[in-house]
Amino acid sequence: MPLERKNPDFYRATKEYVLRAHQILKEPYELKKSLGQMAERLDLPVNPFFLLIVENLEKIKDTTEYETCLVLARSDETISKHLDKLVGTVHTTRLRLNSENLMTNLLLWFTNDSTLSHFELSTFNSLYHRIENFFYSDCLKVSVVSPLWLFSSEVSYVPLDDNLNIRPIKPDEMADLRRFAWLPGPVSAMLYQVRYVLDFSFWMKKSLVRVKNLMCHLVKGLMCHTWKKHLTDYVHFEY
């Protein structure tokens, strides 16, 4: 039985937008692949598909599918609440979403080697499900990953409690760490030798902040932290 979508029109429009954009991206993707120009082959810490999309963005923007999807995103009450605001939590990173980077990021989310080669509805649906969760949920799941230096283990997974565990580092986390290769001193070189991480995951209330209200929000966050009231912002979090 198909899942009930929060906004079936936006779901359909997103699917058509992704399919159309992938048609446009296919040729340059194949060409870059055959020329070996993808950034990953050059060992750059940049998502190669981001470069691919940005290079072809004007062509993608000219399509009716792009326009339809954008109009539906703007007209959806919940999705539009996120636009032109900083999305995050009281304590964690705030990501600014606007109409244009929403469409670019949306496409990036659905684009990888496998989806560009062959569209599969089940893969699309599971990826879309996370988009829906992000927009329609009041909470954000945050994972705090701490690479363990000089550490090795005979056991690959060690749960310490429901939220905290020790496990091997994942390739995407290693890629994230490489984005911090500007770290001072030898730390950036040390990142490559990390095998395990301490992973602490928790849910927090989502906050949407207008840029002009940012200072008030930061002060509020600081005061919450100072007064040790920040725990009230946590949900699904047991002490």
């Binding site: 995050g88 701490s146 363990l148 550490f151 990142l191």
Partner: peptide, 29 residues
């Protein structure tokens, strides 16, 4: 054994990315 955390990286589980580094390394290389 000189185990330490190299850093802490917040990774919000959202499709639009956004991560940040929160602490500095304070261990023995």
């Amino acid at each position: 054994g000189d185990v330490s955390c190299l850093t802490m990286i917040e990774r919000p589980d959202n499709p639009f990315g956004g991560l940040s580094l929160t602490t500095e390394f304070r261990g023995h290389i």
